[in-house]
Design a protein around this nucleic acid. Structure first.
Lengths: 261, 261
DNA sequence: CGGTATTTTGAGTATCGTCAAGGCCAGTGG
DNA sequence: CCACTGGCCTTGACGATACTCAAAATACCG
């Protein structure tokens, strides 16, 4: 359903929209119109994409890589409030300025549409309008999933929930091919300090929690930013296993211990 | 057992849409069309409105009172992920089932539109379409504000941030008239257990933090669910004062204009 | 007025935040 | 090629905070 087809298309331009699920279902006409008002921009890790307070002149869609959304506090510190991955949009269609900064967390490619023509196109194309709305709905759900992650009382639990999120929602983006067998690998796209703020903790505590999980055999720390997932089931248990169904699906091909209450 | 109960069909038709900001700007024609497919339902505190997993047959808008959005875990415990107040919509227009339960936190009035005709109307009326989209954008922002609240490392800070939210975003809804001078009163619409889960803590810790704030003179605990705000500025400081501007507005004098998404 | 649920308090322990130091890695310059 | 430097991650120690368990006090409801 969500498969993007490797386009056997003649023009290079036509490929610009490819790979983004939500655009795949659009009509030929709408896609062509989008094509005309878009451009691809590449960002290096750490580079700013949009700043809070300014009404972005374009609506963006992540094509590759990971962007982080953050609020800059008055004292200069930054507070991450979410990550944007392939297919996520930003830029407040029809609305005022953004309330958050957006920066590239990894090298990233952004597909950007000039605001005015994009809004006009949305008004004119019901299918695009609907795609935008569904995208918002999806982001809303994910923001609420974040809340559940953050509502975990212990750092270990929040970290486990976060890793779980990386394995499920961001599957195929943050995760990498397994090394032969069934071992799943996850790349953490942000540093310890940022991760700590995201999880409402401190870098030291995050590090300790991470190593505690490793000591208990739930994960392997291959590199500081690269983890191997050993037991997804135990991880889910640690996180409070809110959605046991989805985990079960993932664990299906893994020798995870199933101990549902 | 909570059961959904259809409310009385609207008879005072003309006034049904009144009082909800986002509908005020709609065209006469759209409002009339909405009028025809809506009904008002009243819920008692604790009563269920929609259950997760089912595609709601209604798109709802809160008219009065407070609803809570929650995820029911496999073990029966519930996890609150947000509160809905006047003007907030729920029901995933154009999309599948809800992922959360919705229950009345206080006695509430919900304006509900039958899904099919509502979606048809949205497709037909650009102004309504845009109102729905702006509403989603606003909810997304508030969900992210929640994340910042929850990312506070200490319970005191999270609690202070939560109270601040009640004073700003839910102003006039959770807040009550001041008793004479500058003292603001806030009603907490959920019990300690729910509040604790919402803030990623335990009822005991929430109670202690609350009384600690009271001992330090930031608030008064009039009843377990009714607080008097003594010093908004100190509260903001406690919370980490992310948005000092808005606080300054409130701390000075009102009336604060409703913050637009 | 009694019964129940919720909130609060208390004591003990685990966890976490804080401060400070040490280690690892990459890039830089001798 | 190697020492040096700076950033990030990790570790250690200690004090503060928060969770757990248990019990008492209070509010709520009929």
């Amino acid at each position: 359903m969500l498969e993007d087809r490797p386009g056997s298309l003649g023009s290079a331009d036509i490929c610009m929209l490819s790979g983004i699920p939500q655009f795949a279902a659009l009509s030929e006409e709408t896609r062509n119109a989008l094509q005309r008002i878009c451009q691809v921009t590449r960002y290096a890790a750490g580079q700013g994409v949009v700043h809070a307070g300014e009404t972005a002149e374009f609506i963006g869609t992540v094509r590759a890589g990971i962007l982080r959304m953050q609020k800059t506090l008055h004292d200069g510190r930054q507070h991450i409030v979410g990550l944007l991955v392939k297919g996520d949009m930003f830029g407040r269609v029809f609305d005022g300025p953004l309330h958050f900064d957006i920066e590239a967390a990894t090298p990233a490619e952004v597909l950007s549409f000039r605001r005015a023509p994009f809004e006009a196109l949305v008004s004119r194309s019901p299918d695009l309008d609907r795609a935008v709305m569904l995208n918002l709905l999806g982001e809303l759900d994910r923001a609420r999933d974040w809340m559940i992650v953050l509502a975990n009382p212990r750092v270990r639990g929040r970290l486990a929930a976060f890793l779980l999120m990386l394995c499920t929602r961001l599957r195929g983006i943050a995760t990498q091919a397994t090394d032969g067998a069934d071992r799943l690998q996850v790349r953490i796209p942000i540093g310890r300090a940022d991760l700590a703020q995201l999880l409402g903790s401190r870098p030291e505590s995050v590090s300790r929690a991470l190593h505690a999980l490793a000591d208990d055999g739930l994960i392997d720390i291959i590199r500081p930013d690269l983890l191997g997932i050993r037991d997804l089931g135990l991880l889910a248990e640690e996180a409070g296993e809110h959605d046991s169904e989805e985990i079960a699906l993932l664990s299906g091909r893994l020798p995870a211990t199933r101990r549902l209450g």
